[in-house]
Nucleic acid binder design. Sequence first.
RNA 1: GCGGGCGUCGCCAAGUGGUUAAGGCAGCGGCUUGUGGCGCCGCUAUUCGGGGGGUCGAAUCCCCUCGCUCGCCCCA
Length: 443
Amino acid sequence: MSQLQSLRGMVDLLPVQTRRWQAVEAVARTHFRCAGIEEIRTPLLEVTDLFARGIGEGTDVVGKEMYSFRDRGDRSCTLRPEGTASVVRSVVQHGLLSQGSQKLWYCGPMFRYERPQAGRQRQFHQIGVEWLGVGSARSDAEVIALAWDLLRDLGVSGLELQINSLGTIDDRQRYRAELVAWLQARADRLDPDSQQRLTTNPLRILDSKNPATQQLLAEAPTLLDALSEESSQRFQAVQAYLAQMEIPFRLNTRLVRGLDYYGHTAFEITSDQLGAQATVCGGGRYDGLVQQLGGPATPAVGWALGMERLLLVLEAAAAADPEGAAARLAATRAPDVYLVNRGEQAEAVALVLARQLRAAGVCIELDGSGSAFGKQFKRADRCGARWAAVIGDEEAAEARFLLKPLHNKGEERCLAMADWQMVIDILACDESDITTATQFDQQ
RNA sequence: GCGGGCGUCGCCAAGUGGUUAAGGCAGCGGCUUGUGGCGCCGCUAUUCGGGGGGUCGAAUCCCCUCGCUCGCCCCA
């Protein structure tokens, strides 16, 4: 294929998609506004060291998935693989924490050099929330609720919230030793990958997909049992808050998460509609990160939601229930008026009329083909417009135009060009008649 | 990085060695040079992701390559 095409794992979003994306983003913005969360936008490119220090040198994301290169000034730069490190860097850099706690959200592309598969691309998009300077167990629950409610209002079903506590660094170190000892005694029953991780990253063995390993793990000591009294109580409190909000969750003691900065509450929201990459939203508490990146000791929680995965789930939901909220998100609105025009004079006049009506908020499709009236009407009909406005040489010469209903009752009217504003009233009377097309095209 | 599946028109898709590569959708044009929705007619791939090899002859067989896709690793 010598045809130019997009890079592997980098996909175009065509109008069929952008429609839904915009709808999702709009709902998210509303939720954030109601929760007093403000948007932050940070650069896509950062100094490599930010991610190496923030996410953790030993993680896969840093070890083998970053898009890094040297710029012309010989600085090592990296396309952000996630949002949290950048947000923390920005907040620290601008001293925002001196003004109190920060509730922020962001959205945009992230980059990870991985093999693409269902629900995974090299450029993918996240909507994320970061709360800096809030350390209570209640804030964990509040932040989780935010994600849960957003997904609910989008009309997504079949979701499961899984939570776990990773405790403090001390808790984890103690548990790690305990787990390694226990597994080492049974190393022969572990799959090769897990045996490898016994030395590199033992906690990761917990969420291995190998069935035999999982079976073995069922009897292994759990992180939850290894938590200190304080950590344990904190986690109990988070669960109690979730219960009070009637948000269903499942305790998953194997949930670890691959980024080093997490501690205490960790959670994921998964969908049964996705393939192997079932996590739609993931997050947790990261109390040490701000200080680690040079800021004041500051507790923090947050999550990130994968847009591509969310959209996959949404499409499934819309297909399953064409009347549901998810399907309504993709509703397209046909133009209010299709402007049929033909003839030199008429075309000029039509342009002016279209501009006037657009400025007044009317959605107008101006036919630019110059083809026969019959053709233009055919297109008008097919695009689903409720009205056609018609300007030919006769109308242009007499400074008037026709307004004709296409598939609803109503009279064809002849209006003077100067009375163009009447169109707005005529359309308004027709409002009750709106039928929104809920077509969900397959990708 | 490693494994499996797949690549025929903008989209869906038949064709699995033999003269001109079905069909559907969309698009464009016509029947209908100023009035649509239905219908009918016509047009739209010298070419089957790309390259090479064998064959009298290939989209169909072999090799290489590129791409897509699903899974592993890991994550959203």
